[in-house]
């Protein structure tokens, strides 16, 4: 075998030939492109993109690619290893000179390339969005790279779980659940924990009578403390994507694309809510920070989330390798070698 890479690439090629050969796959890609086409048309109208630039269109299409890939990818990769075992083709590959590690990596590469095909399918629309203007090179580069990394993570979860669990249907479902936990579960956990942890706040209102502001009205209430839990959101793939992209603000400090809007929202919750608020009718109005100022005053979190995800994905592949390696010493109940 010509090196570790050669063997893994060979496995990936066999795997891709298996999957891509189907007409169904091309139909799926066609439907996907049609959906993106419709979305692009609507987004151009909604964001007035012909005048204000394609930032909104570009960022939303990237998110749609991530969404569609997370919906389709587990079904394609979540039975990569145990499905072959069921079909009786895994053992005949394992008695050849390719190692189990090469088989696992090759299948992951194939799953990743399949997911990247969605990005390629969305390419004409991304180019169109860039042509509308106002999309920086930094945004294009970073968001594409981070999206590719996220697709690699999803593919690794699918292939890894298909090596760890013996039943194909079960591993596909668990892959979906893992991805749902990251995409939706983080939001729910964040919301519930924040709402369940509340602090007392005091609101002091000095009302104006003529020129006199001595009448003081104090009220008490409770606010949710999302600032304790903002770290949970760092594990969300959409947040990682939005937070990683370079921000794009208007002259008045307003976010100009979906990435920036989400990043501002996520960074805003890093700040503790004010527990003592005073409003004085006689004092000049306090300065309200713009979204841009909020963004600048908080710390980015995307690389922490992405690093954790990459470690988990590598761990899933490693575990699958350990479970699939031959000669097998211990087998899970109900698992057959061949």
């Amino acid at each position: 075998m010509t090196g570790v890479i050669g063997g893994a690439w060979l496995i990936a090629m066999i795997e891709l030939r298996q999957r891509v050969r189907g007409v169904a796959w091309y139909v799926l890609l066609g439907v996907f492109m049609f959906v993106i086409l419709c979305a692009t048309a609507l987004l151009v109208l909604a964001t007035n993109a012909l005048h204000s630039g394609g930032g909104g269109v570009f960022s939303t299409i990237i998110f749609l690619v991530l969404l569609l890939a997370t919906l389709v990818s587990p079904a394609l990769s979540g039975n990569a290893i145990n499905g072959e075992r069921d079909a009786g083709t895994l053992a005949t590959t394992q008695v050849t000179l390719v190692s189990t590690a090469q088989i696992v990596i090759g299948k992951w590469l194939a799953a990743w390339i399949t997911a990247l095909a969605f990005l390629v399918g969305a390419l004409p629309f991304l180019v169109f969005a860039v042509a509308l203007g106002q999309v920086s090179l930094g945004t294009i580069a970073v968001s594409t790279l981070v999206l590719a990394a996220e697709l690699a993570v999803i593919a690794a979860f699918g292939v890894g779980l298909s090596g760890v669990l013996s039943r194909p249907l079960f591993s596909i479902v668990v892959t979906y659940l893992v991805i749902a936990a990251l995409s939706v579960g983080t939001l729910i956990t964040f919301g519930l924990l924040g709402a369940a942890t509340q602090s007392d706040t005091t609101y002091t209102y000095k009302s104006q009578t003529g020129t006199d502001c001595s009448a003081i009205n104090v009220s008490y209430s409770r606010v949710p403390r999302f600032d304790h839990y903002w770290g949970i959101l760092a594990a969300n793939p959409y947040v990682i994507l939005a937070d990683a992209a370079p921000p794009s603000f208007s002259d008045r400090g307003q976010p100009q694309d979906l990435f920036t809007a989400i990043a501002v929202g996520v960074r805003q919750v890093q700040k503790a809510p004010p527990l003592e608020t005073t409003y004085d009718d006689c004092a000049p109005p306090a300065h309200q920070p713009t979204p841009e100022e909020i963004y600048e005053s908080a710390v980015p979190s995307w690389f922490v989330g992405l690093t954790i995800q990459l470690v988990l994905a590598a761990g899933a592949l490693f575990w699958a390798w350990r479970r699939t390696d031959t000669p097998a010493r211990r087998l899970a109940t109900g698992m057959r070698v061949a």
Partner: peptide
């Protein structure tokens, strides 16, 4: 140096 023909007949269906 060893060739093995299993009792379960698997073949990649699309190839």
């Amino acid at each position: 140096r060893m060739g093995w023909m299993p009792d379960t007949l698997g073949a990649w269906p699309s190839l």
